[in-house]
Nucleic acid binder design. Structure first.
Lengths: 205, 205
DNA sequence: GTCTATACTGTGATAGAC
DNA sequence: GTCTATCACAGTATAGAC
């Protein structure tokens, strides 16, 4: 009989503390914006002295980095769970995928800021934290290819359009839907461009 | 004989000092990013002690605000100067206008950051600084209407597409043109959507 | 390994003298 | 208007207790 898989209680506890710190940071960010995240405030919430955080994160930006990785990992999970329920018709599939992203973005604007804008002036994501976002893009390209959209630059253009709409919405009218309501129209436009079959979901004006 | 227009030398000098401060801030930002702009560095460049800056700007964000207004005012000027040279054919006109914006954005990424992203975490533009950007949008809508694009949301969609492409370019590959090279294609796509006449400038794939 | 205590540096901002 | 002096707060480094 082989030895039972050894639980590394130390590593578990360490990981739990890291998660606790990140959760506190998310709370603060959601309540007062990313700028409100200070080491002192985070430390106070987890019951530590500020310098103690350095036992778990090398710097404040390392905390942002952890949040960045978490956010993209969460979205990767959402994507994978939604793969099964993507509709078959190409245009419906396209709209479903980008709508999933937009919903994810709008439900937590601060998270979207961290994921997609370079909101925190001196923060550059590490390779490790960047990995899940690359996986998301790969998955998206695969799904696009499955409905026949695989030309160079097609995915780039699609992502730029969706990102542009969400950015404009959050920057100019947070909470509204003046821009995001144009998502179906924009995706029909894109579908026409890349030559997707099937009728338009919405008539042209 | 009427009195000569009274030159307010004091106001002139005051305005000159403000401009000097903003110029110093632009220099620093271009060299080291917006985060590098500190009151001490600005003061050093204009030969002042840091607190003296408060005689001219109420806060550091007020300096960002001044830069924001300057940037949009500059672009408004570029737009007005280019109005005369916009080509007649609708699709060419459209591409010319957005290309003007993209060129303006790419030539100074830091300026674009300040203008279009909420890069500085706690900065919200004042009404005064916001005014020229509103004028730019009004001018853009007018020019769109002149080529027959006037439906609600058309300008919004166009701006979102262009902004999305520039954002993606600067965020993922500053200095490259993987995304911005798709501008003609994207504008043809948009032109098809809004029913602009004339042949596509580029063939579909 | 983990946390505390203390301290250093740099930041934006204020008060008051000249 | 500009200066000097000073403040409160930030992120961070280090030493040492457990």
């Amino acid at each position: 009989m082989t030895a039972a898989p050894k639980r590394d209680r130390l590593a578990e506890r360490r990981e739990a503390t890291r998660a606790e710190i990140l959760n506190a940071a998310w709370e603060i960010a959601r309540a007062g914006g990313l700028a409100a995240v200070t080491l002192r405030e985070v430390a106070a919430r987890v019951g530590m002295q500020p310098p103690s955080l350095y036992s778990h994160f090398a710097s404040k930006n390392a905390i942002y980095d952890g949040m960045f990785g978490q956010a993209w990992a969460d979205y990767l999970l959402v994507c994978r769970q939604s793969v099964a329920s993507v509709p078959k018709p190409p245009r419906k599939a396209l709209l479903y995928m980008v709508q999933t992203f937009v919903d994810f973005a709008l439900v937590d604007p601060v998270r979207f800021q961290l994921m997609n804008q370079r909101m925190v002036i001196d923060f550059e994501p590490s390779a490790a934290a960047y990995a899940p976002s690359v996986q998301v893009m790969t998955l998206f390209r695969d799904q696009l290819a499955r409905i026949g959209v695989s030309a160079d630059g097609d995915a780039d253009l699609c992502v730029a359009i969706v990102g542009g709409l969400v950015d404009a919405q959050l920057a100019n009218e947070p909470g509204g839907q003046r821009w995001t309501a144009q998502l179906p129209r924009a995706m029909d436009m894109f579908a026409d461009e890349v030559g997707l079959p099937a009728p338009r979901l919405r008539r042209r004006r």
